[in-house]
Design a protein around this nucleic acid. Structure first.
Lengths: 291, 291
DNA sequence: TTATTGTGTATCGTCTGACGATACTGTAAT
DNA sequence: ATTACAGTATCGTCAGACGATACACAATAA
């Protein structure tokens, strides 16, 4: 239960004699001056902000409204600080109290910020018409997601007929190593980078067919490189087949992916690929900035 | 260009001799101890956090990647502070640099937070299946939005065939006074509360037919109270007709709305209402917590 | 060339106001 | 009663945020 906010782990302390707090906050147990060096000697690191983000991130691990103590535990911020931070964030509308149940929830203001994020991210701007066209032609579920290290973040979703719960929400994240979109992203990277990402991934399987070894992933990557698009069968859901292509940024590195998902009850893997594969690839290319 | 973050305006400073900064930051020109009283004498108000939020909110007003100075201007935070805050938020992944263009953008981490927000908000949890069913039966665009004072925030969207750009993004906000969902929310409130909200709303019209007077709004509210659902014609888009019903929370006050939008090229207002009105109302009731 | 204006970055003495241990209040379950 | 956990409030100390100022670099114009 000793909750430590995950994404923080890659940050290190910067200034020499301001260590104690950050070590505690960020979850780095040994302070390595070697690694700290990589940030130069930038003195700009505000404690309160880091705590605020940690508190907000605590909700990512939650399944119900959180109490102060729970926030404190999950975020790794001490109780007194959590108290102050939560109060402040409440004044600012980033956190609200759950009316009935005792507890705190993230506020609606975060949604507005997320909107800014989507609105200002270049791919998202271009993607909308392309995705709609794709959905019109295929009548299956079409998504776009952004690549974030070991995971993909769903940015836009166009659901089709049958649909399961949380799947529909913007901001949901899935691992790259066992999704069509993720594999298509990996296929654009070097083999050692893939191995690195796989090694750092959370390998909890979603279905009995979810990949568990690097070999399986590399096999899928090789197929993807030959074929031009990725195919994932029964990776996240038992009856799902998904195809994906990477979207490339200016520097020819992937920034995200678009995917198409259907039911195995309606399509075999081969049919699905044959039917929509080239269309998907074309769409992916039209969104990529590299030329 | 003296940019001041809007949503902050309702907050006031709390502690007696810590005024100066906040007045500047939050944009309250006159400090009213009467109003400050409403927060008790809670001393918990952390400056850095408020700044952080202000900086992140600056992107809501942006249409392109922002430079440090622009962030400083739009958020009302001084340049030095903006510098520190931006650096910190970058370390924390809340802000990223736009690769090509010089400038900062909100980071993907915000999307993940937004997901937590949607996932933990009770209505959103229940809404998904109901909305899908509704879309299956109507084949039109179905949305759910959350009420936030003078505006509605789109939380879930299920687009249909024809669709315009930004409309598709989660977190977009629209005024309550000129949308079907908004009117349906207003219809659940007292007349003076409606007047108050209208008075504080941004009345920039979207189309030539957008409401401009309180009378028009009250007329629509009365019709909605009789009919059971709200209808808005050509309010946001020239060819759009929308219907909405409020979703009520435990205390019988609206927390949001669900809406159905179609094209006037395909439906007349009467047809649309007659065809889907009762279905929409039923869905709305099934989502409301009040019993 | 030389200004000019705009980036992003770095420095530093001052003194604010965040820190966190501790304690208080209220509620619910046992 | 007892325990446990909510949320709230207090207070002396001293870490470290504050913001004015200056620097480096790039892109524009004169």
């Amino acid at each position: 239960m000793g909750g430590v906010i995950r994404p923080c782990q890659r940050f290190f302390l910067v200034r020499k004699n301001r260590t104690s707090m950050f070590r505690k906050l960020i979850g780095v147990s040994t302070f390595d001056p070697e690694e700290a060096q990589q940030f130069g000697d930038d003195p700009l690191f505000i404690r309160a902000l880091a705590r605020g983000v940690a508190v907000l991130s605590a909700f990512e691990l939650a399944h119900k409204p959180l109490s102060l103590s729970e926030i404190s535990q999950l975020s790794g911020v001490d109780r007194s600080a959590a108290q102050r931070v939560v109060h402040t964030l409440m004044q600012l509308g980033m956190i609200v109290r759950d009316e009935e149940d005792r507890g705190y929830l993230p506020g609606k203001r975060i949604l507005t910020m997320a909107y800014s994020c989507l609105r200002l991210t270049p791919i998202c701007q271009k993607a909308t018409p392309a995705l709609l066209e794709l959905r019109r032609r295929t009548r299956e579920r079409v998504d776009m997601s952004l690549w974030d290290d070991t995971r993909l973040i769903y940015a836009m979703r166009m659901p089709s007929k049958h649909e399961i719960f949380t799947a529909t929400l913007t901001g949901n994240t899935v691992p790259v190593y066992c999704t069509a979109g993720g594999i298509s992203v990996l296929a654009r990277l070097g083999d050692d980078e893939i191995a690195d990402i796989f090694a750092r991934s959370d390998l909890t399987p979603f279905t009995p067919d979810t990949f568990t070894t690097l070999d399986q992933v590399m096999q899928a990557v090789r197929e993807t490189r030959n074929r031009g698009h990725a195919i994932a069968v029964r990776q996240l859901l038992r009856h799902e087949i998904a195809m994906g292509v990477a979207v490339l940024g200016e520097d020819n590195r992937p920034v995200g992916a678009i995917h198409l998902a259907g039911s195995l009850d309606e399509h075999s893997a081969e049919d699905f690929s044959a039917k929509f594969g080239t269309l998907l690839q074309q769409t992916g290319q039209s969104l990529s900035e590299y030329r």
